[in-house]
Design a protein around this nucleic acid. Structure first.
Length: 598
DNA sequence: TTTAGGTGTCATGTG
DNA sequence: GGCACATGACACCTA
């Protein structure tokens, strides 16, 4: 019943691009079970960590002088007997930390010297996966070789692997055209190798949930998203922030440092070929690491700077999109990536970190609908670059082109579908987005009509020098030049207007804040003034009563009191007090007035 | 239909 | 003088 209803609703909304998984009860149920499984694993892991900490503390004793925990002397028989296998593992790991690092470096060095091919790093990585993953296994795993738990130095991979097998690996890995086959082979190897199960506590790294398991089939999930997730964590730039528990194996902490010198794309290419097809349309596959991308450029001498420009739109976009999706998976549409005017300055937005940044509207569109944005740019890419003789550098290999075509077909079928799986509100800002797209596509259509071989983003965001260089390298006619300049001017002005309005709003907010503070100041001063008036009245009353008191104490020669209406007390400048008759005073005043009038 | 808010674009000023 | 940027003004669109 529910499923029929869901089917009906889905069929009704298919034109909106909603994916069937959104309505699939089984799919949600499966996700729910996975979530529960993860929570259970996390609890188990925490429990194990606590046990390890307890055991470690039991092995130590508090030095009362320094306040440090020091190992108990070996003569302490009861404590020694209390050492659990977990502690053994931990001790072993402490010893492995240095020894393994040496063997790892030696291994890399040996591989680099022996096989100086382009993919040597990748090769070492593939071999190192076995070296690294073995100590990562849970101590409870029966498949763990006892030698890996011994406190001695680790056996380097060449010794661990039979020479014939190693040679076969090397030859296979050294051929770039066999990378795809290799990836499939490695995938099979992963499925058959006894890697730690998901409930293994050391595998349950919190970051493992970031792995895009939605792209995997059910059968792959258990095998693939477990062990490689740890390796995947070695590629994002947040390795120090992972904050692995101290009780975890030092090898796990060590692994990212050891593996930082190989490319993430090749590694992911090995482990997740399908995911790369899904995630990336460029020839380099998954390229979330900017530095990695930049380091790749010198390794590709056939690409001139012009080629890099040519490659940049789709390539950089993919990177930008992926980084956006990675950093802002649930980014709200209202968030502007350029929060400060300087940050949004287009002059600084290009090639600062090796990639093209996009204007606020572009970024917003990417946030809203990365899939459609990608298709737009890929469409521009193919439309603009294919007919141009100067742009015949194909950014897609044959296979990836086919994949891209399939992807575009998929895109046409389910264009508004959010690839990331989280649907944005399709009815709130959709029209704004469409309007923006209309405006954006207007220039794109003009550019397409005039066969301008650049994307609008390139025209707008390139620095003036690079833009001029780009213009000089292409023979454009007057109409094309005029349109390119108009597009650039409008794009720049659009960003400037956005920044201007942002500043204006900030100024308004600041002025409102100032106004509030000034109002508070005014209230405070008024209150202070009223308080002063009250005090002044009180003092006047006290002075008046004091005056009357003093006046009532005065007596004439006959002992009679003076009338306040007839006399008054006045103080001279030297402080002496005089009793002055009021009549006389008024008379003197009149006399003074008379004299002054004369 | 009216209206307020958002956004793009143009013209102009400024450094 | 040319350029990039800032900003007021206007038009258009949308809720």
């Amino acid at each position: 019943m529910d499923m029929n209803l869901i089917d009906i609703l889905w069929n009704q909304d298919i034109d909106l691009g909603a994916r069937r998984e959104v309505f699939d009860y089984n799919h949600r149920q499966k996700e729910h079970e996975l979530q529960r499984q993860r929570e259970l694993d996390e609890e188990k892991r925490l429990h194990l960590v606590r046990e390890q900490e307890k055991a470690l503390l039991a092995q130590l004793q508090l030095d009362e002088e320094t306040g440090e925990y020091i190992p108990r002397p070996p003569s302490s028989a009861p404590l020694k007997s209390a050492v659990t296998p977990l502690e053994v593992t931990q001790n072993v790991n402490f010893t492995e930390e240095t020894d393994d690092a040496m063997s790892f470096d030696e291994c890399l060095q040996l591989l680099a010297e022996t096989f100086p091919v382009e993919d040597t790093e990748n090769t070492s990585v593939c071999l190192d996966t076995t070296a690294v993953s073995a100590p990562m296994m849970s101590p409870e795993q029966p498949a763990l070789p006892p030698a890996t738990l011994s406190p001695g130095p680790l056996i380097p991979p060449p010794q661990r692997m039979s020479p014939d097998l190693e040679q076969a690996w090397m030859e296979l890995l050294s051929l770039p055209e066999l990378q795809q086959c290799l990836s499939m082979q490695m995938e099979d190897t992963l499925e058959t190798t006894t890697y730690p199960l998901p409930n293994s506590p050391e595998v349950q790294n919190p970051n493992y949930a970031f792995y895009p398991m939605t792209n995997l089939t059910e059968g792959e999930t258990n095998n693939v998203n477990v062990c490689p997730a740890d390796f995947m964590n070695t590629f994002d730039g947040s390795v120090p922030s992972m904050a692995l528990p101290d009780s975890l194996s030092p090898m796990e902490v060590k692994a990212p440092q050891l593996n930082t010198d190989f490319s993430a794309e090749s590694f992911c290419d090995i482990f997740y070929p399908d995911a790369i097809v899904e995630e990336s349309s460029g020839p380099h596959g998954l390229e979330g690491n900017e530095s990695n991308t930049m380091s790749d450029i010198p390794n590709k001498p056939p690409f001139t700077p012009m080629d890099l420009y040519s490659l940049s739109p789709g390539d950089a976009f993919d990177r930008g999109k992926q980084s956006l999706m990675a950093e802002l998976p649930d980014s709200d549409s209202g968030i502007s990536s350029n929060t400060s005017p300087n940050a949004s300055s287009p002059g600084k937005s290009v090639y600062g970190d090796g990639s093209i940044l996009y204007s606020d509207s572009d970024m917003e569109e990417m946030d809203h609908n990365p899939g459609s944005a990608e298709s737009d740019y890929s469409e521009m890419f193919s439309l603009d670059f294919q007919p141009d003789g100067l742009q015949t550098v194909s950014v897609l290999t044959g296979q990836s082109q086919q994949q891209q075509q399939e992807k575009n077909l998929k895109q046409l079928k389910t264009d508004p579908v959010e690839e990331s799986g989280h649907n944005n509100t399709p009815f709130t800002k959709d029209k704004q987005k469409k309007r923006s797209e209309v405006r954006l596509s207007r220039d794109e259509q003009r550019a397409k009509a005039l066969k301008i071989p650049f994307t609008v983003a390139m025209i707008i965001n390139l620095p003036v020098d690079d833009f001029n260089e780009l213009m000089s390298k292409h023979q454009l006619n007057e109409a094309q030049l005029a349109l390119v300049r108009d597009i650039r001017r409008r794009g720049k002005n659009k960003v400037a207007a956005q920044n201007c309005r942002k500043r204006k709003m900030e100024n308004i907010v600041g002025l409102e804040s100032d106004l509030d503070s000034l109002k508070e100041e005014k209230e405070r001063l008024l209150s202070e003034k009223s308080q002063n008036i009250t005090n002044m009245k009180e003092m006047k009353q006290q002075l008046n009563s004091l005056y009357l008191e003093v006046f009532s104490m005065l007596r004439d020669e006959k002992g009679n009191s003076y009338s306040p209406s007839e006399y008054s007390l006045q103080q001279s400048t030297d402080g002496s007090i005089f009793l002055v008759p009021r009549i006389k005073k008024t008379f003197i005043k009149r006399e003074d007035k008379h004299l002054s009038s004369l």
